[in-house]
């Protein structure tokens, strides 16, 4: 039962992440992989880029704590969380959550738990840059808060 987290400016390779999860062994019958990407939010003034700020001293520690909580709740073979920071363009990958478990239920549940908790407790902030040149900090959504409290 191991977990690893990474915060980086560079992109990540989903195939590589998948192969790393497989290293957990032949007993992991279910793997759930989630990838979050930069959405264009198409409309009159679409998003062209995001700037992701974080609290470096706290980020990895808070992700590690979430992985620990997931491992306490479910029997998991391997967990991997990768989150990017810095400037990202539309379509770019932002976050990867991968869970390997014996069966699908634990894998799906743990991956969802990790994303719901990450969105409300990990110190990342998005600033959107639109085609017109306008920019604004993304507002936290009440629906994200509700999703996270489901697991309380």
């Amino acid at each position: 039962m191991t977990g690893q987290v990474q915060v980086q400016t560079g992109d990540f390779d989903v195939g590589e992440q998948y192969r790393a999860l497989l290293a957990s062994g032949a007993d992991s019958g279910g793997l759930a992989l989630f990838i979050g990407r930069v959405r264009a939010d198409e409309g009159a003034d679409p998003v062209v880029a995001l700037e992701l700020e974080h609290y470096p001293a706290m980020t990895e520690r808070s992700l590690q704590a979430l992985v620990g909580q997931a491992q306490e709740r479910w029997a998991l073979d391997q967990v991997s969380v990768v989150h990017r920071v810095g400037r990202l363009s539309v379509g770019d990958q932002i976050v990867f959550v991968g869970v390997a478990a014996a069966h699908r239920r634990e894998a799906f549940a743990a991956a969802q738990f990790l994303m719901d908790k990450l969105k409300t407790t990990a110190p990342f902030w998005k600033k959107e840059f639109r085609r017109s040149g306008a920019s604004a900090w993304v507002e936290a959504k009440a629906s994200d808060e509700a999703a996270a409290s489901y697991w309380a």
Partner: peptide, 25 residues
């Protein structure tokens, strides 16, 4: 580097961070 509530005790030498609700993921 750990989330707290406003009634938590701060001691000399500590680092206190203030920030808006987070929006990662």
């Amino acid at each position: 580097q750990q989330m707290i509530k406003p009634d938590a005790e701060v001691r000399p030498g500590d680092e206190l961070a203030l920030f808006p609700p987070v929006t990662g993921g």
